[in-house]
Amino acid sequence: MSFFAKVMPFAAVIFVLFPVPVQAAGIGRDTARARAIMTRVDDLWRAESSHGVMVMRVVTAHYQRNLKLEEWSRGRDESLVRILYPPRENGTATLKSGNTVYTWLPRTDRVIRLTSSTMMATWMGSHFTNDDLVKASRLADDYDPGIVFTGVRHGIDLIEIALRPRPDAAVVWDRILVEVDRSRTLPLVCRYYDEDGQLVRSLFFSGVKMMDNRLLPTVMRMVPADKPGEFTEIRYQSLEFGLVFADSFFSVNQLRRR
């Protein structure tokens, strides 16, 4: 259970920021190119700020769940997500500020700060964990990209990039493989592997559309490898960029305001 942070930019989450242009000497051409592609992909979602509405559909062996969520974000460390639907959970909100995640529960009128014990728990009953959201904003610091494949696969001209964790990065994956559509530089799929080389889960991107003058995938589907038939799908209904927020917007006080 439990939630928090920004739902949406799961993409941003995953690809996020490599804001630093390629510079360091000693980085091979491939690495530099991989970095450039990842930066480009990340910039699809990344802006100074964003605001969007999305629906999330969760299908598990035990339940199906449909949520409507509204999201605001600024930079890579601040985000606010509020549940619009279903009514039972309406108003429940999650604030991520740096490494800290707060949840406001209208039913109990309490703000709870999530602790380490809940980090591996599911986020809003989906196949994402709270940890995914917190770690997402650190991808740039945590992984080194490298191109492992260029060419046509399943009929698509694509580039496959492998993200390997840096030695001191606190991430659980041994490897993330990202397929990027070469012509449009849009992500197709991310595959997450553990240290046994086992695929643990896959994140698929689709529904490429123009939103606020950007062409980007508006549908993301997370599929766990060991639970056949289960998935979580996030679909953007609207997305806008370049908003200006008051400094107090991403604060605990704002969290409580409905």
Binding site: S116, S117, M119, M120, D131, V172, W173, D174, Y192, D194, E195, D196, Q198, V200, R201, D226
Partner: peptide
Amino acid sequence: QAMLAAGG
């Protein structure tokens, strides 16, 4: 106290 994780 800590949460410990590896792979999934």
